[in-house]
């Protein structure tokens, strides 16, 4: 089994076998990160460009470190405001970057589909590091890896995803991945933040957190974009937190071995109390470690193969 694709754009279009391969390879890469010398020569001479149109410290850092541990050269470009004010189109920006002979472009962009757009326009490998409200496949894969390590199997596992599903690319990637592995996926949030038609994917939708948490095996909390307040999705953050914030009482409704996950950065006291975020159930820091391994695996697996 090899990864016969140029790009990683979404979990929705990954085959189950490809996900197996990525997770298995990532597990092997975790050992590399435990070594004294954490650098291997696999991608020596390759160039990775992190093209970020949205500010992000942790995802960019994780991709950067992953590439560096594989001996690739990394350039970070924050294209955010500068290119838009100069009216350069995304196509022009990316063709200019490709002209630097890069082998990979890791792109984060505020528009859904931006990674697809680049992938079809460019010869180099494109890794989607989050496009609009579409997908964030490396985050989805690292979440899967974390659950797999802790639970072994996904079959029948009750996973509850809480919060702003509508605007969450993390939720989208998680849902696709979890469903492919046979997990029992539950979504909780206000109806204003649940996308239309999502029940058809085979998930269960709840509006009440307590009801959804009953004997949950995994709780994935989503970050609430604070600027959603005042756009009639919910009245106030205070009320949102009351309805959908995870605290110790609510956690006690879940299975005693329940994992608490969050893609970060956390709004403490809004999505989750500090007590729970730092508690024994929390695997939030393991997610970060696994993120590095998954991203190394993606770079490595995309490196091979003659691309016609």
């Amino acid at each position: 089994m090899t990864l016969k694709r140029k790009d990683i754009l979404s979990i929705a279009d990954l085959e189950r076998e490809e996900m197996d391969l990525i997770l298995h390879t990532a597990e092997s890469f975790k050992e590399v990160s435990m070594r004294d010398i954490k650098k291997v020569p696999a991608l020596r001479g390759k160039t990775v460009i992190n093209l970020f149109f949205e500010p992000s410290t942790r995802t960019r850092t994780s991709f950067e470190l992953a590439a560096k541990r594989l001996s690739a050269d990394v350039i970070n470009i924050s294209a955010g405001a500068s290119s838009t004010t100069k009216h350069e189109t995304l196509l022009d920006t990316s063709k200019n970057i490709q002209a630097l002979q890069s082998d990979y472009i890791v792109v984060r962009h505020h528009s859904s589909g931006a990674a697809h757009f680049l992938a079809s326009a460019l010869h180099c490998s494109v890794i989607n590091a989050g496009d609009g409200t579409h997908e964030h496949p490396s985050q989805g894969l690292l979440d899967l890896l974390t659950i797999k390590e802790k639970r072994g199997d996904f079959k029948g596992l009750k996973v509850v995803i809480v919060g702003d599903i509508l605007h969450s690319r993390v939720a989208n990637s998680d849902i696709h991945g979890l469903l492919k592995y046979g997990a029992d996926v539950h979504l909780v949030g206000p109806p204003t933040l649940i996308p239309r038609g999502i029940e058809k994917w085979g998930v269960t939708v709840h509006y009440h957190l307590d009801e959804a948490l009953a004997s949950a095996d995994v709780i994935i909390l989503l970050r609430l974009q604070l600027e959603r307040q005042g756009k009639s999705f919910f009245p106030t953050i205070r009320e949102y937190s009351k309805l959908y914030g995870l605290n110790r009482r609510r956690l006690s409704l879940a299975d005693p071995k329940c994992l608490v996950m969050h893609p970060g950065p956390i709004n403490r006291g809004i999505e989750v109390t500090s007590e729970v975020a730092d508690g024994l159930s929390s695997v939030i820091l393991e997610q970060v470690t696994n993120g590095l391994a998954v991203r190394m695996a993606l770079f490595f697996l995309l490196s091979g193969g003659s691309r016609e």
């Binding site: 589909g113 409200t133 579409h134 239309r196």
Partner: peptide, 15 residues
């Protein structure tokens, strides 16, 4: 159009 496809593509829907 707001529906299953817009949800899958992460695109904002028009009901």
């Amino acid at each position: 159009f707001e529906g299953e496809v817009s949800t899958a593509l992460g695109l904002r829907g028009i009901p």
